[in-house]
Design a binder for these strands. Structure first.
Length: 302
DNA sequence: AACTAGGGCAACCGCATCTTC
DNA sequence: TGAAGATGCGGTTGCCCTAGT
C-alpha cells in the first residue's frame, strides 16, 4: 500500500500481450518461477505478482496442453477425483499432466452448466405433462412451451416435496416429478422421465443406482428401453453388495462421508442429505452428481 | 444476414495459508 | 510471536466464438 501513496502505480489488467509474455518467460528463465512481485518492483511489467504467476501457471508453463480438449480418460479422472476430493482443483490437476487447476475448474464448470441446463429443460418439460396423461407429446419440448413446475405436489399423485431432514426421496422429488405412467419420450432426457422410485436413496446416488431402482419399479409393460454402458453394468453389479448403500452413512449423520470408501459419484464432502426443495432450481442441483447422465446410453428411437 | 444462446476460456477478485522479518 | 508481504486456491466474471434460428 505504501507504493500507492506516491505516484499512482499503474497496474495493467486484461489480456496479455506477446511482449509481456516474453518478459515474463525471461524472468522465469533467469530466476525461476518465484519472486513474482519483483517483476513489477523491477519495472519489468506493470502487472501484479499474482497476475504474473497466474499467467505463467496457466499459459506459459512448459508442457501445458493448451487448446487441447479433455480426453475421455481425463474427464473420467476429473470426475472420479472430484468425487473424492471435492472442488480441490489444484489437487485434482496434479493428477492430470499438462492441465492446470483453472483448466479443471473450467471443465467442471462447463459440465455443471450443461447439466443444469439439461435438468432445467427436463424439469420444465415434465411440468407440462403434470397430471396430464394425454400430454405425453409435450415431453418433446426442449425447454419451450412449458409451464413452471408446481411448487408442491401431492405424493399420492406421484409427486411430492422433499422436506428438510427428509431423507426419503420418493418418486416424487422435484428432480423426478413424473408420474409412473408418463410416457417415456425418446427425445427428452431419459432419467427424469422414468418415474424413478428413489426410496431411501439420497440424491448422491448416481445414475446407475437410480436406474437399478427403476428397473424393478416399472411393471413389465412399463419397462422403458434402457441400455447400459459397460461401466454402468459394472456399477449395477455392485448393487449386489449389501454394504454398498452404507457408504453414504446414516441419513441424519452430520459427519462428512468422504473419508469412507467412495464410489466415484460422491461430489461433495458435505453431508449428503436431501434439502428442502426450493423454488430456485440451482439449489437442488448442488446436491446432484454432475455425472449422473454420463453412463446412460441413449435410448434408441423406435 | 441478424440475432441469440451456449460453450470455452482467460483473467480478476477475495480469502486462506505460508513465509519472512 | 505477531505483522506484513508473498503465494496459492477457488469462485466468479466477462469476452469471444460458434451453432442454431
Amino acid at each position: 500500500m505504501r507504493k500507492m501513496e506516491g505516484k499512482k502505480e499503474e497496474i495493467k489488467k486484461g489480456p496479455w500481450k506477446a511482449e509481456e509474455d516474453e518478459v515474463l518467460i525471461n524472468h522465469v528463465n533467469r530466476y525461476g518461477p518465484r519472486e513474482w512481485s519483483s517483476i513489477r518492483s523491477k519495472g519489468l511489467l506493470h502487472r501484479t505478482g499474482k497476475s504474473c504467476r497466474l499467467r505463467w501457471v496457466n499459459k506459459l508453463r512448459p508442457n501445458l496442453k493448451n487448446g487441447c480438449k479433455f480426453s475421455s480418460e481425463e474427464e473420467r479422472t476429473v470426475i472420479e477425483l472430484q468425487s473424492e476430493f471435492g472442488n480441490k482443483w489444484a489437487r485434482i490437476a496434479t493428477y492430470l499432466p499438462g492441465r492446470t487447476d483453472n483448466d479443471v475448474k473450467n471443465f467442471w464448470s462447463s459440465r455443471q452448466k450443461r447439466l443444469a441446463r439439461i435438468l432445467h429443460n427436463s424439469s420444465d418439460a415434465s411440468s407440462s405433462s403434470f397430471n396430464t396423461k394425454s400430454s405425453s407429446s409435450s415431453h418433446r419440448t426442449k425447454g419451450k412451451n412449458v409451464k413452471p413446475l408446481p411448487q408442491s405436489f401431492n405424493p399420492s399423485q406421484g409427486f411430492g416435496v422433499v422436506e428438510e431432514e427428509d431423507i426419503t426421496v420418493s418418486s416424487s422429488s422435484k428432480i423426478f416429478p413424473y408420474s409412473t405412467d408418463d410416457h417415456v419420450d425418446d427425445e427428452t432426457l431419459r432419467l427424469p422421465d422414468l418415474g424413478i422410485k428413489l426410496e431411501h436413496q439420497p440424491f448422491a446416488f448416481g445414475t446407475d443406482l437410480v436406474l437399478a431402482e427403476t428397473s424393478s419399479f416399472f411393471s413389465e409393460s412399463q419397462q422403458p428401453n434402457i441400455t447400459f454402458s459397460p461401466d454402468s453394468r459394472e456399477l449395477l453389479a455392485r448393487l449386489d453388495d449389501p454394504f454398498y448403500y452404507d457408504i453414504l452413512g446414516p441419513p441424519d449423520s452430520s459427519e462428512p462421508l468422504f473419508a469412507l470408501p467412495q464410489p466415484f459419484f460422491e461430489p461433495s464432502p458435505a453431508p449428503r442429505r436431501c434439502r428442502h426443495v426450493s423454488k430456485d432450481d440451482d439449489v437442488f442441483l448442488d446436491d446432484f452428481p454432475a455425472d449422473m447422465f454420463d453412463q446412460v446410453d441413449p435410448i434408441r428411437s423406435p
